[in-house]
Design a protein around this nucleic acid. Structure first.
Length: 950
RNA sequence: GCGGAAAUAACCAAGUGGUCAAAGGUGUAAGGUUCAGAUCCUUAUCUCUUAGGAGUCCGUGGGUUCAAAUCCCACUUUCCGCACCA
């Protein structure tokens, strides 16, 4: 059994001592590889490990390819989650306490310190960093930073100064979900039940009564032409409010809500609902409609004023029916304004009321009935002649058309409502608030977008399928609020009330890795004097060097050095990230680079990967299926985890992690290690046999294929071949050599060496161990990726394929007949067949099509006697050849000195003896003295000898 | 609602017009190795078959083609994103 952790520690020490992963400006070509930095609000689990592992494998591969690879790491402290955890801890929230205590196993004394958000961040920062080190990531740790470091904040300020200067930051209003108690915007994780605040826009249609406005809220403005009356609840007390010089009568709830939406509201008076009953109100179309009582009108819904369209709204219809039943009868008739196709007629509302057995307006089925009718009319309805100039328009379009007509003529307005009632975690019901003076990054700017599209066009997006997603996101992007009122982060320089939002402060931070090295090594100590001048010089080369050196109190040598570093390492050659960041971070990353940096510093590649599931479920605290990465490393070792993560699935796929698969990987890696020690003494062996030529040929192919796959970041495919294809070839080689009682030669050593080299980016620690076993002194992390320098020997490859196919035929026959073989006789075909076969082959060499003409064509070129004697053979040969690849056909055509009989005698005979403990007799079809009791010899074909098993 | 992605055998998964009954892995079974077990090796794993063969097959239903898992159309199902949230 291998002690994984012991090996890992040993080799990590070697790497550290030799500073293998520290990257400075050198003469060779660089690759700057980055990955989204972690947010330290929880320990990292196996899912987080995926992106980082892929990045590390990629980095290590490129390093072996001879590039000077820089792979740095930082930590993202800014944002709200860490802050809200600390608040919960302050409030002694049991749930969060349990999570930290039971799932993350954090010492209780430590948790008590978490009332300070920075302590939380620091704790997890350390945890995550240790995990990354233990995973063996080849990170240049000299460049580590956090996003609340003073100079990082200066850097963010500089970035926003640049954007502001370019008019890419604009101010405006913006609706947010809002908790009136906390005085804060709410997002999904701030609400009870994690409900996302969604908004619905109601159209408000203003009816006038006396000097007052009765604003009716509706989702269906187009039904205005079918209004017969207005509903109000006589038991409610309404408010009279001055809105833009109009006296609105609205429910008390509505008054409360629109206070958050509108600025200038003046409360005037209140009025009881029943005071309004049976009064007349004017509609847009100048008709008068009566105000009637309805119980279904609720204080919390809309404005408390409802326009009644009984022909198209089940509630309205039923309320009218209810009214008829009572003493106050009414003669109001529904006005049908929407026609739908055939099967549904205009009395649909009545039908639907009957269908659900609704008898009064408080029936809860009315909700379903309404939904059904609304959706049907929306999809199939057309406005009829009662809609005047809007007649004939489909409802799908009419809704927006009528709405803008209403807005343009100032006979209505709009009002935002939460799509469903939401409670803040503090318990208070949320509202929508319009934030004034909100700052936006103007991602909607078309000029900017076009530049970005250009950038994406020249970028390599891996996998390529994702490219289209980027274009769609760019199209869809509009202004994005980039500042908020609470959270950790950097304040906006020109408006100190706002804190830069945490996705917006992390779009170009990769450039900061260049600077952070000089902060960490104390070349820059005085953060107070760092100003925009500093960044202008580093990133643009702008300004007077001596002046900047003086003002920023940094020596000019250091400044020049940093500038040189930036020019060397930028642009980013590859950014790795999870797929979920495509619609936000990754696109912002491109947008901001394009906005701020010169074109030659725009990013070159993005690689995205899918997420990790655990036993088919998303990892989540509540599910309890989180495996902290560090626990897993202790239990299984870093390399087995790395390999498992990669081998389970290709980049884009979500992976379903199964701990059992790690154990299989462990065994396989152990086996490779064992093989290394078994065959190391062959290093200097010089003997060469046919099998060696074959093995080298295979090695050549494998190296070529795997290298290509690595370039395409098809890591799973590459690793599959390293782990499994190599084994299959080794086993065949061993079977062959052992069957002939030959010794193994250097080819197997070469084979293993290349395998270990190619394995090393995936499983770096154990690969070092293997490399040492193979009698090497240098660490493998400094070695070059193998080149396909071995000769591809067609003849030996073909020979082995031929043997495999004969063995497989023998197995097949044994399987079908279920006989226990005592003796095997093999017949190779005669020369006439070979010559016919070659003729056919030459005709089919470039031809995929297999039709009648081909057969005629072939037959016409053969001697009559041949045709008669071999017609069956000809047919079968055509079939054989047509299932071969063109490549194969060419190789078979060019084969020389391929004497099946002697090959079978020298190669197959020992193999069969070795594996079946049987004797093989070999004849040619043309041998007169052949033993052929089954008359099988006539079935022989080239590359397909006839077989008799007794 | 809007937008995107996908559906392949017991499971995971490769496969974008002919090399496809369809790689590889896992699981399962038999045999070998072993004192025994694990590992390892061989073989098998859609159906039928006492001769290396035949039949059916890639979500469903159509279509294009000499040729379809692969291209086109429709349908069904599943997954994901939708903004102030990392």
């Amino acid at each position: 059994m291998i002690d994984w952790n012991k090996i890992e520690i040993k080799w990590r020490n070697v790497w550290n001592k030799n500073k293998i992963f520290e990257s400075n400006v050198e003469n060779n070509e660089k690759k700057f590889i980055t990955v989204a930095y972690p947010y330290p609000n929880s320990p990292q689990h196996i899912g987080h490990g995926r992106t980082y592992t892929i990045t590390d494998v990629h980095s290590r591969f490129l390093r072996m390819q001879g590039f000077n690879v820089l792979f740095p790491m930082g930590f993202h402290y800014t944002g709200t989650p860490i802050l809200s955890i600390s608040k919960k801890i302050q409030k002694k929230d049991q749930e969060i306490f349990d999570t930290f205590d039971k799932i993350y196993k954090i010492p209780k004394s430590k948790i008590n310190e978490f009332t300070d958000p920075i302590k939380i961040a620091k704790y997890f920062h350390n945890e995550i960093k240790l995990g990354m080190i233990e995973m063996g990531y080849s990170i240049d740790w000299r460049r580590e930073f956090t996003t609340i470091d003073p100079i990082y904040k200066k850097f963010v300020e500089w970035q926003f100064y640049q954007l502001h200067k370019k008019n890419l930051i604009v101010q405006g209003t913006h609706p947010v979900g809002w908790c009136p108690m906390d005085q804060n915007p709410v997002s999904q994780h701030d609400t009870v039940g994690d409900v996302e605040p969604n908004f619905t826009e109601y159209t408000i249609i203003k009816f006038s009564y006396d000097e007052y406005v009765l604003p009716a809220a509706t989702l269906r403005p187009e039904t205005i032409f079918g209004v017969t009356n207005i509903w109000i609840n006589p038991k409610m007390i309404y408010k009279i409010v001055l809105v833009d010089n109009e006296k609105w009568i609205i429910s008390s709830d509505c008054f409360y809500k629109i206070k958050f939406l509108k600025k200038n509201l003046t409360y005037l008076d209140e009025i009881s609902g029943d005071m309004l009953l049976y009064k007349k109100a004017k509609t847009i179309t100048k008709n008068e409609v009566i105000i009637l009582p309805a119980e279904f009108v609720k204080n919390e819904m809309g404005t408390g004023i409802v326009m009644s369209v009984p022909a198209h709204a089940p509630y309205d219809y039923q309320a009218l029916e209810d009214l008829k039943k009572s003493t106050k009868t009414t003669n109001i008739k529904p006005i049908t304004i929407i026609e739908t196709k055939n099967e549904y007629n205009t009395t649909r509302v009545k039908e639907i009321i009957n269908k659900f057995g609704i008898t009064d307006q408080n029936d809860s089925n009315l909700i379903i009935a309404t939904k059904e009718l609304y959706s049907h009319e929306f999809n199939y309805g057309i406005l009829n002649e009662k809609a005047g100039k809007f007649a004939g328009i489909k409802i799908k379009k009419a809704r927006d058309i009528v709405k803008s007509w209403i807005l343009n003529n100032n006979i209505g307005s709009t009002m935002l409502e939460l799509s469903e009632p939401i409670k803040c975690r503090c318990g208070a019901p949320c509202v929508i608030k319009i934030l004034d003076n909100q700052w936006f990054l103007n991602y909607g700017d078309e000029k900017w977008k076009n530049q970005v599209r250009n950038c994406v066009k020249n970028m390599q997006i891996t996998p390529t399928e994702i490219t289209i997603e980027f274009y769609r996101v760019i199209d869809w992007l509009k202004e994005r609020a980039c500042a908020r009122q609470h959270g950790l982060g950097t304040t906006l320089t020109w408006d100190k009330e706002w804190i830069i939002e945490s996705l917006s402060d992390s779009t170009i931070y990769m450039a900061y890795y260049i600077i952070s090295k000089y902060i960490n090594n104390k070349s820059i100590t005085d953060d107070n004097n760092i100003s925009n001048l500093f960044f202008d010089y580093i990133f643009f080369g702008d300004g007077d060097l001596l002046k900047i050196a003086y003002k920023c109190k940094i020596s000019k040598d250091i400044l020049q050095k940093i500038r040189k570093d930036f020019l060397y390492f930028y642009p980013i050659d590859c950014r790795h990230s999870g797929r979920d960041l495509v619609p936000n971070h990754l696109t912002f990353f491109i947008m901001n680079h394009v906005a701020i940096f010169k074109e030659q510093q725009w990013p070159k590649q993005i690689v995205v990967n899918g997420s990790v599931l655990m036993y088919g479920k998303k990892m989540s605290k509540s599910m309890g299926n989180i495996i902290p990465l560090r626990d897993a490393i202790k239990k299984y070792g870093a390399d087995p985890i790395r390999v498992s993560i990669i081998i389970i699935s290709e980049l884009l796929q979500d992976i379903d992690f199964d701990l059992k698969s790690i154990e299989n990987v462990q065994i396989r890696l152990e086996n490779i290690l064992l093989k290394c020690s078994t065959y190391k003494e062959l290093k200097n062996n010089k003997k060469i046999t046919n099998e060696d030529k074959w093995l080298w040929s295979r090695l050549n192919v494998l190296i070529k294929t795997i290298t290509e796959l690595m370039h395409k970041i098809r890591l799973r495919d590459a690793l599959n071949r390293i782990l499994f294809d190599f084994d299959n070839d080794i086993n065949w080689y061993l079977r062959r050599t052992e069957s002939k009682h030959n010794l193994q030669n250097k080819s197997i050593y070469d084979f293993l060496s290349s395998r270990v080299l190619m394995l090393s980016p995936f499983a770096p620690h154990i690969a070092e161990e293997m490399w040492k076993e193979l009698d090497n002194t240098e660490t493998i992390s400094r070695c070059k990726w193998p080149e396909p320098i071995y000769e591809y020997d067609k003849n030996s490859v073909h020979l082995e394929d031929f043997l495999k196919s004969v063995v497989s035929d023998i197995n097949n026959i044994i399987k079908v007949t279920k006989i226990k073989p005592k003796k095997i006789i093999i017949y190779t075909c005669n020369n006439s067949k070979i010559s016919i076969y070659k003729k056919i082959m030459s005709l089919m060499i470039n031809n995929h099509v297999n039709n009648k003409n081909l057969l005629h064509n072939i037959i016409s070129r053969l001697e009559k006697i041949e045709i008669k004697k071999y017609i069956k053979f000809i047919n079968q040969s055509i079939k054989d050849i047509s299932t071969m690849s063109i490549e194969d056909r060419k190789i078979k055509m060019e084969l020389k000195d391929f004497d099946e009989k002697s090959i079978l005698y020298s190669e197959l005979k020992p193999l069969i003896r070795y594996e079946f403990d049987l004797d093989v007799e070999i004849y040619s079809e043309s041998d007169y003295d052949k033993y052929d009791p089954g008359n099988k010899a006539k079935n022989s074909r080239p590359f397909k000898p006839a077989i008799l098993i007794e």
